[in-house]
């Protein structure tokens, strides 16, 4: 009898790590995906001294906001690719047809997205901090706030990317959907850095960013998988 053969099961952790490995491998094969957000991040931050004023005191003042806005825009830029190629070549519909929960794959894809955009941006942020004359005391605050804040950006962005993947030109729509939701992260993120510049404790800001991350971790994969289903079936 056919039904009685091959009752193999795949545990959730196995599936999670397989999905993570696959997405990381794909990013490393397509180097442009990896470097475009980083170069964009650097360019945006360079425009401010050129366009507004190269005055160190002015730059130190705006540095927290500029670095955070640049990180946010760089993340936004990379969102469209999250599900797009999988949708185009039909691998996304195969993921839907797996008897395993789609949520696990969505979580892994989001984490892979963060590891290839948010994490490198965070690691590069001290360089931008130095370029913008951010006081060295505030560097730790900058890195920590980005470390906790950027995964939230990936989680929120994944929902937008999943909702728009079925559309031919989803790029602009993603920004409109996702940017308003990014505002709280931006406020607390740059707030943390400003507090660090002023020598105030940043624990409260980081706790709020952490709360956002916890919420995103729990809820976003659910919303993302539901959105993927809607996009593919439409």
């Amino acid at each position: 009898m056919v039904e009685e053969t091959n009752i193999a099961t795949i545990s959730m952790s196995q599936q999670f790590s397989a999905a993570l490995k696959r997405d990381l491998l794909l990013s490393f094969r397509r180097k442009s995906d990896l470097f475009n957000p980083l170069i964009f991040f650097l360019m945006v931050a360079t425009l401010f001294p050129l366009g507004v004023s190269p005055e160190p005191t002015f730059l130190a003042d705006v540095a927290p906001g500029v670095v955070w806005v640049a990180a946010l825009l760089a993340t936004l830029l990379s969102l469209d690719g999250m599900f797009r190629s999988d949708y185009d070549d039909g691998t996304l519909e195969q993921m839907l047809l797996s008897p395993q929960p789609l949520m696990i794959v969505c979580l892994a894809k989001t984490l892979a997205h963060w590891m290839t955009t948010g994490l490198p941006l965070t690691l590069m942020s001290p360089l931008l901090g130095v370029m913008l004359f951010l006081p060295s005391d505030a560097m730790l605050g900058l890195v920590l706030s980005l470390l906790i804040g950027t995964p939230t950006l990936s989680f929120i962005g994944a929902i937008g990317a999943a909702l728009t993947v079925g559309l031919k030109k989803g790029g602009i729509l993603i920004s409109l959907l996702v940017l308003p939701l990014y505002i709280p992260v931006l406020i607390f993120g740059s707030g943390a850095v400003q507090a660090a510049v002023a020598g105030l404790p940043i624990g409260g800001y980081l706790a709020l960013l952490g709360a956002g991350l916890a919420l995103g971790f729990v809820l976003a994969p659910l919303a993302t998988s539901a959105a993927v289903r809607v996009s593919v079936s439409g």
């Binding site: 094969r29 691998t91 195969q94 047809l97």
Partner: peptide, 13 residues
Amino acid sequence: LYFGHQPGVKGML
């Protein structure tokens, strides 16, 4: 087992 309109094969892999 579903074999769709698109082959579902990733070009990069």
